[in-house]
Design a binder for these strands. Structure first.
Length: 488
RNA sequence: GGUCUCUUGGCCGAGCGGCUAGGCACCGGUCUGCAAAACCGUCUACUCCAGUUCGAAUCUGGAAGAGACCUCCA
């Protein structure tokens, strides 16, 4: 089966065919770095990490570009000329670039903890002002933009009349939009309310500014992605991704910009992840109902009953398909945590299995095949996980002596977990830290003492040791073959 | 108001015409000095109404509810 991806542009699943195999170019809209990353940021980070990982697994050579938006864009719809990063900088009395650097680092740290692979290139908007100005010039030359009071605006109506393309991605009818667009402040310079800025003149108090042929100012909201994707992936590349909330106007406008600047649409496949909701409502910075990743990892948010590890968050997100909304709750997160633990314990137990020669065949290959088909079907990670649970159940039965496996089956089992759980889903065993050798030694020592007590039928002492260990998070399991333990 | 999407069991969440998804929780059992884990088993579903079909959670029409986008947002 070939990889099929759901293309937002055509609204159906399509067989993935790269322009220039084995190379694949993928551009994903990254964060605006004026605040800590929250649970919502984890979704696209992980979604496109999966795409990245799976394409590589399939043998493609992927160049993955994810931008850092450090030109903060406007704070609100009134053209006050102050952007988010500049505002934060003013409030904290630091350089805007300090704000951007600070939150960029924190964003990347959080993504690292989530085991999100670093993209091939992470360009920043502020580092590509020249390229953005160049795109503005191209669009002006093509006749689809106009200068007005030091600003440059994209002429949406002219573009639409000539190409009939404004709205192809978001399925919007421009005539409707023109009627419903509200009266906004500072719109005088625009020919039409639907027009969007390519270049904005900076007000005197606006501290983030660059020189341009039109004014000292800053680039428009949608320009950086057009400029940077074209620079690093070419003006026609394979995949463009981002959150569903960016569909309109951001991605729609990117298409318009590319068509005018380069004569064609920027990408073949548009992939959008859905939102994470909290109590059924979108979690978002502007809604103030978000939980930062740090709070999640520490358990410090008032909505959290406890801390959740980065892998729990990752697993939680992967248990839903990326195009579905995913509702946050303590119950759901706890369920994910327990399920993940079970899966990881099964994975560890693979190493304790001794294959039997005369074992009947267990059809591990079917599970591997299921996983492959699930990933090929628009990255259906929940199905992959359900198959891994099937495998976990088989492993447990073998460990329990209720099932046997031959060496080929065992190898398949190892491959299944290594390929799908570790490499593709990117789940790592957080227990395997560098402290482990020490802890292992200590626990073994204590268990030896306990074993002695048990030999003497000193149950009180045995239980006391078990309870004390449990208190510090070491769980003991007694079985016929001996004692095993795990960290809680 | 316009455009679009969603509504699955106690909770989360797949499925998209016929075949028990899966996880968590609950309950019963096996195992165990006890406990935990593990294993086995059981129980809860497709918002409502009408239609198409031999057959619908899955297709069509209608109703109700929820959400997203239309303004920066992942």
């Amino acid at each position: 089966m070939e990889l099929q991806v759901y293309n937002t542009l055509t609204r159906k699943k399509e067989i993935f065919k790269p322009i220039n195999p084995p190379h694949v170019g993928m551009y994903v809209c990254g964060p605006t770095v004026y605040g800590d990353a929250h649970l919502g940021h984890a979704r696209p980070g992980i979604t496109f990490d999966i795409v990245f990982r799976y394409l590589k697994f399939l043998g493609y050579k992927v160049r993955y570009v994810r931008n850092i938006t450090d030109v903060g864009h406007l704070e609100n719809d009134a053209d006050e000329g102050e952007d988010k990063i500049a505002k934060k900088a003013r409030l904290e009395q630091v350089e805007p670039m300090e704000i951007a650097q600070f939150y960029t680092k924190r964003y990347l740290d959080a993504m690292d903890l989530l085991n999100v692979l670093r993209p091939s290139i992470q360009p920043s908007a502020s580092g590509h002002i020249i390229e953005q100005i160049d795109i503005v010039k191209k669009i002006l030359d093509a006749g689809y933009a106009y200068v007005s009071g030091g600003n440059v605006y994209f002429d949406v109506l002219k573009y639409h009349n000539d190409t009939h393309k404004y709205g192809i991605l978001s399925n919007r009818v421009i005539e409707d939009m023109l009627q419903t667009t509200r009266e906004l402040d500072g719109q005088k310079e625009k020919h039409n309310p639907a027009d969007f800025a390519l270049w904005k003149k900076a007000e005197p108090e606006h501290i983030m500014r660059w020189p341009s042929p039109w004014s000292d100012g800053f680039p428009g909201w949608h320009l950086e992605c057009t400029a940077m994707s074209a620079k690093y992936l070419g003006d026609k590349f394979d995949i463009h991704g981002g959150g569903l909330d960016l569909l309109f106007p951001h991605h729609e406008s990117e298409i318009a910009q590319s068509v005018c600047a380069f004569g064609h649409e920027p990408t073949n496949y548009w992939i959008h992840n859905n939102m994470i909701t909290i109590a059924g409502q979108k979690m978002g910075k502007s809604l103030g109902n978000f939980i930062t990743l740090e709070e999640l990892f520490n358990g410090t948010h008032k909505l959290l009953e406890k801390a959740y590890s980065p892998m729990t968050i990752r697993f939680f997100i992967l248990q839903a398909h990326y195009r579905s909304t995913l509702d946050f709750s303590n119950e759901a997160l706890t369920a994910a945590e327990k399920g993940l633990k079970r899966l990881l314990e099964a994975q560890r137990n693979i190493n304790n299995i001794t294959p039997s020669n005369n074992a009947a065949e267990l059809d591990i290959k079917a599970l591997i095949n299921n996983c492959k088909e699930a990933m090929d079907d628009d990255f259906n990670t929940p199905i992959v996980i359900s198959n891994l649970f099937e495998a976990a159940s088989i492993i447990n039965k073998i460990i329990d002596g209720k099932e046997k496996i031959n060496s080929e089956g065992l190898e398949d089992l190892k491959a299944l977990f290594n390929n799908y759980l570790v490499d593709i889903l990117g789940i790592k065993d957080e227990q395997t830290s560098n402290m482990m050798p020490t802890i292992e030694g200590l626990v073994k020592m204590i268990l030896d003492v306990r074993q002695e007590a048990r030999m003497n039928k000193d149950w009180a002492k045995s239980d006391q040791l078990r309870d004390k260990l449990a208190e510090i998070g070491v769980k003991i399991k007694d079985s016929k073959d001996g004692v095993s333990w795990s960290l809680d």
